[in-house]
């Protein structure tokens, strides 16, 4: 760990991450924590985020709890999390009030419909980006496509989909890891 931030610094750092994070806070979190403030090394940050992804809950939210605890225990975890959410939450209160007042006016509604369509495309585009960066095998891509079909088309409950597909995905992944290990052992 390169530098240990004080409690106020910790709060302000995460407040910055929250306030800057348009379209998701992931990229900003890495920038502020690793590059700008040097609280964690790249590797340490990847470890924290990896665990944050496996646990349920928002990834960066989980990371803020773990990073905060690492520096200042319970107080640190609370301060980091509060910092992350405080700015966006305040802004969201203002936006909710404005939206309730004006959102359905005939003059405003078309703008919001355009934004809604664009935001939906953003989510699909992000999924495509992540999928192509993953460079997964054809079998694992098929598992991902099955998840899409089951949830978006068949509208099956997510728990059922995950309960069926998770063992399948992990089994395929395990087989591939074994095959790779064998190929390494016998060149």
């Amino acid at each position: 760990m390169a530098e240990v931030p004080g409690k106020l610094e910790l709060f302000l750092g995460f407040a910055k991450i929250g306030a800057l994070g348009f379209g998701g806070v992931g990229p900003w979190a890495r920038h502020v924590i690793v590059e700008e403030r040097k609280w964690l090394t790249e590797r340490e940050y990847a470890e924290v985020l990896g665990l944050g992804q496996i646990l349920p809950g928002p990834n960066v939210g989980n990371a803020s709890v773990m990073i905060g605890r690492g520096f200042h225990g319970l107080a640190g975890a609370l301060l980091a999390t509060a910092g992350l959410y405080i700015g966006p939450l305040c802004l969201l209160v203002v936006m909710s009030i404005l939206y309730d007042a004006y959102g359905d006016l005939p003059r405003v509604a078309p703008f919001m419909e355009g934004v809604a369509a664009a935001a939906a495309g953003m989510v699909i585009g992000m999924a495509l980006k992540m999928a192509f960066n993953l460079k997964a095998s054809a079998q694992l891509v098929a598992v991902g496509l099955l998840a899409i079909a089951a949830v978006a088309w068949l509208r099956l409950p997510m728990l059922l989909v995950v309960a069926i597909l998770a063992p399948l995905g992990i089994w395929i992944s395990l087989r591939q890891a074994r095959a790779a290990a064998l190929a390494k052992a016998r060149p």
Partner: peptide, 27 residues
């Protein structure tokens, strides 16, 4: 953990894509 992740991440991405498709059909 790497094995677990490699098996689970495609499902997570599939769920995100499904979310986008549902939002798009709503809009």
């Amino acid at each position: 953990m790497r094995v677990f992740e490699r098996g689970m991440v495609p499902i997570a991405i599939g769920l995100i894509a499904a979310s986008g498709l549902l939002l798009a059909s709503g809009a």
